[in-house]
Nucleic acid binder design. Structure first.
Lengths: 148, 148
DNA sequence: TTACAACAATTGTATATACAAATGTATGAT
DNA sequence: ATCATACATTTGTATATACAATTGTTGTAA
């Protein structure tokens, strides 16, 4: 990925700004490839994310604030995101009996099945994105990102 | 930045997935800090981006497709983005006389003045984001990001 | 027990983004 | 000159996201 070529500029960009632009471009690419991989499955990246969190719950229901905490990119309307997943039949939601302010959200069998198919597509996307990286590269990259 | 702490998971994430999640989290942080820095100036990050491109044109007008090419995150409605900047008085737009399909977009004096103020805020945001990085860190990070 | 603050989710509204279709203009072949 | 095509932007529509206000519920201090 050549930053200058992508944003079509000849003049050289200061190192600090270049780094931040670089990160934005990489994130755009990740996003685009993952979104494309999920498109045939009819879910957004955020929705996929929520399904994965629910699967990780292993039967224990999650409430909205739990989902919100665990999502990679926190978005300010988990209610409506869950609405969409309900429409697709991938999750269900019911009022929490012990505390009626909360809701209990579970992944359905149909949701688990769909998620398994999405896993393949996402695995491919991941490999496509990281094909140029060695394990050492990834370790170094993670260490550097920790400085943020 | 501790990935596991942020997304509140105990189990360890495979290196490849962790890297991609890490990048998303970092990008979210960059976005949030920059958006916050621009908020008092009443422009979005994308709008700021366009103003900067126009300043870089040094008087030569830009048309929409040029802007689109040079934007960091290409978005699919530059027309409306420019509309907003016109409303604020930061740019003007006129039909290109030599090719009436195109438009010529220029930054106004008012836009340049506003942009200068934004530069300070953005400089601060940049320093805040990168305070833990040495020049060598940034060089390594850029080299790794090039592998995408 | 009542009144009040804190909590959890939902709803309303504005803005942002993605994508396709439509508009108006220029170019080239016949 | 006419027609078909390509080009550049705009418009329409659906969906996504941000943020504030609202609803309903719970816990607690007086």
């Amino acid at each position: 990925m050549n930053v200058e070529k992508i944003i079509k500029t000849e003049k050289q960009i200061p190192l600090a700004s270049r780094t931040l632009i670089h990160l934005s471009l990489v994130e755009s690419k990740i996003n685009e490839i993952m979104t494309t991989a999920l498109k045939p499955h009819g879910v957004s990246l955020q929705q996929f994310n929520v399904l994965r969190i629910l699967r990780g719950q292993k039967g224990r229901p999650a409430n909205l604030s739990t989902l919100n905490e665990r999502m990679v990119t926190k978005m300010s309307n988990t209610t409506r995101l869950v609405d969409k997943l309900i429409l697709k039949g991938y999750v269900d939601r019911m009022v929490c009996p012990s505390n009626r302010r909360k809701v209990e959200i579970n992944i359905t069998v149909q949701g688990e099945t769909a998620l398994t198919e999405m896993d393949f597509a996402m695995k491919e996307a991941e490999e496509k994105l990281l094909k140029n990286f060695t394990v050492e590269d990834l370790t170094t990259l993670n260490a550097l990102l920790d400085k943020f």
